[in-house]
Each structure stands twice: as C-alpha cells, then as structure tokens.
Design a binder for these strands. Structure first.
Lengths: 216, 216
DNA sequence: CAGTGGTCTAGACCACTGC
DNA sequence: CAGTGGTCTAGACCACTGC
C-alpha cells in the first residue's frame, strides 16, 4: 500500500464515471497538489492495479490519458514519471525548447530568416524600447519530434546577445549563456490567417523552403 | 470480408511495428486516399477484428489513435465515422467553428471586443485594400468544448457584412449568410509572446474577464 | 536478472442507437 | 431488440532498464 494509494482513496465501480477516469482525475489532482512532484516516479502499474483493486489495463488507460495531457511521461523498463511542466498561469517562463523537452518531445527549429535592425515604431511601443534601439529578429519554424508546430518571430534587444549567430536551437539557452536569463517577459500570442507560404511550411509538405520570406 | 479489409492487407505480427500501429497506418492511408470518404462508417470493431485476425482491443487502440488525430469520431451505439476535415494543404477554406465541429468538438466563442474603423496602413498592405476602406474588427476568445483554444482577431471589409452585430458564433456562417462565402483567403498565423491578460484568458482561470483589452 | 512499461488475447457486461 | 461502441478483467509474452 503506497501512500499515494491512500491519497487517491477508493475507486467506486458503481460511479457513473468510469474507473480509469476516476483514477486519472485522482492522479491529476495528486500532481497538481504536488503530492507527486516533478520527476517523481509513480508506483508501478501492477502495484497501482493491486493497491486499487483494478486491472492493469484500467491503470494504463488512466496513465495514457495523463501522458496525452502532458502530465506524465512513460519510460519503458523504467517507470512513469511526473513531467516538469509549465505552470498553468505561466508563472514560470519557459521556452519552446524547454516546454517540448518537458513533454518528452524533441524540439528542433529551422531558420527561416535572421536579421538585425532598429526597432520599428510598433515594436518600440510594445516592448517599451527607445527608438533607434538595435534588435535582432529571429524567424523560425519550430518542430516537436519533426512535426512542425509553429512559426515564430522573436525580437531581441541586440545588447542581450553577443551576435546574431549566437542562437542555435534555443533562444533562452543563448540568452542564458550570455548571462541574460529572462526573469520577466511580456508574452503575446496571436492566432491569425496564414499566408500561402506559411501554410505550406506548417503542412509539413515541404522542408526545402527558401530562407527568405517576405512580409512576415 | 469487407473490401476495406482487402485494402488494408494483412497485418504482420512479426513486424517490429505493433499490430495496432500497422492498422492505424492502414486506416489512415485509406482515409487519405479517400477509400474511406468523409462521414463513411467503418466496419464495426468486432467485424474488423475478425477480418484481420486480431483482438478487438487491438482494433480499438488503432481507432482511438485515429480519433486522437482527428481523423475519426466514435459514436456509441452507432459506429466509427470518418471526419470531414480540412485538407492538409488548406485547399479547402474552413472556419474555426467548422474545423472544431468536424473534430467532434463544440465550438464556442466569447467576445473580447468588436469595433469598426478604417484600415490601418499595415492592413491596407497586407489585405490589399484601398486606404480608407471601412472594416470591422472582431476580437474573440475561441473555445472547443469549453476549453480555451486561441485568441482571434479577424478584420473583415465592412461591405461584406450587413452590420457589426451580424456575427454571432461563426464568422464564416455570417459571411455566407450575407452571400459572401469566402472562396479565397490569405491565411496568416503568428506565434507570439502573450500579454498577461491574454495568458490569463487562455489559462482558463477566469471567464469573467472584462470585454475591453487594450493594445491587442 | 528482477522489475518495468508495451503489446496482445478472449471474453464479459454495460449504455446507447436505430430500426 | 440486435448491433454498436465503452469499459473492464485476468492473464500472457515481449523489449527494455538498471542494478
């Protein structure tokens, strides 16, 4: 009997909610309440099944669901582990690379364009920078396990990085390496209509795109 | 023996790829090749299992995976059906509402702000509109099954809609109702940093937000 | 080599659909 | 009420991990 099983309480077969969903909810709450902390291993599936009086398949279905939610990762031969993951309220700043790694996926990016210049009036307003500030702009296509996820534009004050080429895979890594780990950021997300070229990039049909895209 | 089973060919238990993944791939290809068309019902799970010489659980695992991919929807007591879904190349224009419905999810939107005005110089360039053209702007928070999915800004030439209030849930529905079903569009998608307010909206922690958001 | 997750089977009962 | 998907069991063998 693990202490976790005590926390989970008894599953009720007569409940209208299926057993695996009861278990999934219980484990989710245990993770959210930090009873199970990041990187903690769950009891083995066989152990959980025995403790809770259900079959292993029922346990697996709950765990599969949590893995799909990004709360757990399964490692064959090793165990099921709680993901280190972003806080729902974005309290902790994480990069795309970190986020994907925390979800057990391999981040990768392809460069579309990188350039340097001075802030536009719009950027100057949004980022609270003096006009004339030198910035680097990074246009990237982001992948997780080779699946195209998003097109990203990052605008960074040039003085935060040693050079335009300092960014390889992770922008955050490069900033941290330069001693500028971001501690505060204004995060903005837009959902917009795609240009034909952008659609093509995200569709995954072409990876041999040209590096130059106009009017991003 | 269904004709579909013939198309799928034999599953090979000695293959390193698990049976359910072999079947999932076979069904995916059948859907992509339109051997299984939109809204077509699959043979029943028991029938597929018998035809292919595997257990029903193996069939279900393949079908669950395809449902997670958005290629199928399951209807209890009825069957598994091929989704009408967007073409990978965005050849067919679909709205958020249509897309979500096709995936068996319920689209909903909450208004953040709606306004009218004349095109900005930037919009004028991007949308190829004459300066001074009257447009409606729609800022919405989009939900699927009450889960916040995205923040959307739509800019529509005012002459395409009878009024600013003509749009209820679906912009495309409103446009179609006005006789302006879009046949061609420039679609753009941006992944950007979120403002604190936007992050809050998407985190699902607050639904009683104010309708006014500045500097979107 | 003991223990783990990954896959698979044969069978069962349930709620639901649609005639 | 026959057929369907949804859930669940008990058991099995595999590949892999980590000591």
């Amino acid at each position: 009997m693990t202490s976790l099983a005590q926390v989970l309480g008894n599953l009720d077969p007569s409940d209208s909610l299926p057993l695996y969903q009861q278990l999934q909810r219980g484990l989710r709450e245990a993770i959210e309440k930090r009873i199970l902390g990041p990187d903690d291993a769950l009891p083995s599936e066989r152990q959980l099944a025995e403790d809770l009086g259900v079959s292993r398949i029922t346990v697996r279905k709950a765990i599969d669901g949590l893995a799909a939610e990004g709360l757990l990762v399964s490692r064959q031969g090793s165990g099921n582990f709680v993901c280190t993951r972003i806080d729902k309220n974005f309290a902790k700043l994480t990069s795309f690379s970190e986020d994907m790694r925390a979800r057990g996926r391999i981040p990768r990016s392809a460069w579309l364009k990188r350039s340097e210049g001075t802030v536009t009036p719009e950027e100057s307003l949004k980022l609270a920078l003096s006009p004339g500030t030198l910035v680097y702009r990074f246009h990237r296509l982001r992948f997780a396990d080779d699946e195209p996820m998003s097109i990203e534009l990052a605008t960074i004050v040039a003085s935060c990085l040693p050079s335009l080429d300092a960014v390889q895979d992770s922008l955050y890594d490069a900033l941290e390496h330069a001693g500028n780990r971001p501690v505060r950021a204004l995060q903005r997300l837009h959902s917009m209509l795609l240009s034909a070229e952008q659609a093509k990039l995200l569709s995954g049909d072409t990876y041999d795109f040209v590096a130059e895209l106009s009017a991003f």
